[in-house]
Amino acid sequence: MTTEYVTQLRARTARLRRLDDLLGGGDTYRVYLSEFQATKSLLRTISTTDETRRLALSLLAEQAQQAGWAAFDGGHPAEASNLYEESMAAAREAGDSSLLGNAFAFLAYQTADRAQAAEIAARSCATINGGTPAGVRALLHERMAWACAVAGQPAKTEHALEAARTALADQQDGEDQPDWAAWVDETELDIMTGRCWTELRRPLRAVPVLTRALDATTTPTPATSPFTCRGSRTPTSRPGRLRPPPPSPTARWTCPSVWRPCGPGSGSLRCWPSSGSTGTFPRCAASSSGPASRTPRASRCLRSTSGSGAPP
Rank of each mutant, 00 (worst) to 15 (best):
R114A: 09
R114K: 11
R114S: 10
Q116R: 15
Q116E: 10
Q116K: 15
Q116H: 14
A117Y: 13
A118E: 15
A118Q: 15
A118M: 15
I120R: 09
A121V: 04
A122R: 12
R123T: 10
R123E: 12
R123D: 11
S124Q: 05
A126S: 14
A126W: 11
T127I: 10
T127H: 02
I128V: 06
N129C: 05
N129M: 05
N129A: 09
N129S: 07
N129Q: 10
G130Y: 01
G131F: 02
G131H: 05
G131P: 00
T132Y: 03
P133W: 07
P133H: 08
P133T: 14
P133Y: 08
G135W: 00
G135H: 08
V136Y: 07
V136N: 05
R137L: 06
R137G: 03
L139Q: 11
L139T: 07
L139F: 15
L139K: 11
L139G: 06
L139D: 09
L140V: 06
H141I: 04
E142Y: 15
E142W: 13
R143H: 07
R143N: 04
A145Y: 01
A145H: 01
W146C: 10
A149L: 10
A149D: 09
A151Q: 09
A151L: 12
G152R: 14
Q153A: 13
